[in-house]
Nucleic acid binder design. Structure first.
Lengths: 341, 341
DNA sequence: CTGAAAGCGCTTACAG
DNA sequence: CTGAAAGCGCTTACAG
């Protein structure tokens, strides 16, 4: 077993007091240049580095943040997690993650244990944080920030992207490529992403004669939901020539359903998704999508949290990041359906 | 601000000493039934729960494990992470994750900070852990387990799947569906997954007359690498009718390259991947693959680590889990190439 | 600029 | 079965 040296060993070797070493370590308070040299040498010699647990107990700061998300194995969230960890590491923070499966109970359990561990702050990418919980966190003095939440947040900043604007872009693009009857598969309406994208769609299409509410079909933000919704849409409206799916996973489902029916995606029915996950480049044809700046969102929300923790955030507010249309083959309306390169 | 009660408050309210409360909390040593009642009531009344940081400092146990992986945004690893966290949570552990990008430097940096945080143990899904590091961990008394490592591990258990056997299954399947000239895109040879799968392929095909080493082409375990390798293979051998890719991502690349050339995947050239990531269900055609039990691997490795931490693991050893062929359309050799439903 | 002391909230022997 | 004391390795006022 290796012996690990403590601040006392350093103090002894340097011939100073523990307080002085601590002051040097934390750059809190003056230390004479000569003394500093002695301490530095001692640290070097002993290969000392401070015990973070002791530091946490004494100083109430653990340099650890937590990321609560619905499911790390969901592509969107794993991309987000990557960004969060990158930024956190840069600022010297370690990150704990937890899967909530969008269940309040699990989320609350994490909050409980995080509190006991003196976690410095929490990022909620999960949608189940209740008003009571957020107030409790505020009372406990635990800083937090949220992804994609509604406007009701009082105690934490929120980062999301321009969902409604993105939906408007999606519809405009579908119109641009020649679609004349565009359906929408919408996501869960208790999520702001589901709601705002639906809003954007409705606002964009209601001026058209062809628009009817039966062009709307609910999905669950997953592949299976997208497939089922597409089936139902085709039943009701065999003549649709465009589908705007509320997210990429449902767009993949739409693709599958269309292909299963032998409908050429792109030429016959154009499909546009939302999110910009990597999967959109893997389908055949590749999927047109309204890309959220996922990595940037993760990076931004992490920086916000760290600022909050370090007390340099002026005020909590909502940040809405820009989205971007990525046009690919799923909305390429070539004349000849089955042409081959 | 909420006041958080401590073990002292509980002791005072229950009219006993702090040691007794601690003994009760940890089920270490006897506590009189009556005393137990008093303590329980006090805990209830004060809504007390022990401070994990103090506990960590005093007892050298933090109930936290770490998961070091190359990149959480890689589908394979995010699935694995999900399993790890599920199991950890079940046993009362919290998990910290870190992205190594397969760089020894980053990995070492994590080890440094984890050590200072009294982490209970580490799971390495990253391949850069050096001999020195593993010996250092052993000396520090930090338990660890590895995914996919070679046989050289002395200090930690290893979980991986039957890579060679899986490759043999892949080749047999391709032969079964009628392939008579099968190429292999192999992964990095410093990874056991890359090496063993190549081994299995070579062993299976070398008995055939058609086999020649030029049917081998290196990839990088990523989509782009799979595409490039396929291009080169087709150049050399325009008559191949099967491709076994060393992993699913490269198989996706092969798919793309073939489609770009107008070659019908399945009928003309069958493609089989390895890993069983979700993406294989999203491509058109869906990809045949040799599926590793990813979730199970993550769950198993976590349980091993926890056993090691709690001192109930008999001995370190290597576990090889079974793989499974999932046959899909990418190896379906229908007679008519361009038929449509 | 520096040190002694108290304290963070627990656990762990050691007496009794 | 229970309690007093020391200790885990730091930080933070407070004197000087």
């Amino acid at each position: 077993m290796i012996v690990i040296s403590t601040i006392r060993d350093v103090a002894k070797l340097a011939g100073v007091s523990v307080s002085t070493v601590s002051r040097f370590l934390n750059k809190s308070g003056y230390v004479n240049a000569e003394t500093e040299r002695l301490i530095k040498d001692a640290i070097e010699k002993l290969n000392y580095s401070p015990n973070e647990v002791a530091r946490g107990l004494a100083g109430k700061k653990t340099n650890t943040i937590a990321l609560i998300l619905p499911d790390i194995s969901n592509l969107f969230f794993s991309d987000l997690a990557r960004a969060v960890e990158d930024v956190a590491a840069t600022y010297g923070y370690t990150v704990i993650f937890g899967n909530s499966d969008d269940q309040g109970t699990k989320e609350r359990r994490y909050i409980e244990t995080l509190k006991k561990k003196y976690i410095d702050g929490i990022i909620f990418a999960s949608n189940t944080l209740s008003r009571e919980d957020s107030e409790m966190l505020a009372k406990l003095g635990i800083p937090f920030v949220c992804l994609d939440r509604g406007p009701s947040e009082k105690n934490g900043s929120v980062v999301r992207s321009k969902n409604k604007e993105g939906a408007v872009m999606a519809v405009r693009h579908l119109l641009d490529v020649g679609c004349r009857k565009i359906a929408h598969i919408y996501g869960p309406q208790d999520l702001i992403t589901g709601k705002e994208r639906l809003n954007g769609y409705v606002q964009s299409v209601q001026v058209f004669e062809w628009y009817t509410p039966t062009l709307l079909e609910p999905g669950d933000f997953r592949i299976a939901g997208g497939m089922a919704a597409t089936e139902r849409l085709l039943e009701r409206h065999p003549d649709i020539d465009g589908i705007f799916a509320g997210n990429d996973l449902m767009a993949v489902g739409a693709l599958k359903a269309l292909q299963r029916r032998g409908i050429a995606v792109g030429c016959q029915v154009a499909v546009c998704g939302f999110d910009g996950i990597q999967t959109t480049e893997i389908t055949t044809p590749e999927l047109t999508t309204i890309a959220q700046p996922i990595y940037e969102m993760g990076a931004h929300i992490s920086r916000l949290l760290i600022k909050k923790i370090e007390g340099v955030l002026e005020e909590d507010r909502i940040y809405e990041l820009d989205v971007k249309l990525i046009a690919r083959d799923s909305t390429l309306r070539r004349k000849v359906p089955n042409e081959q390169g």
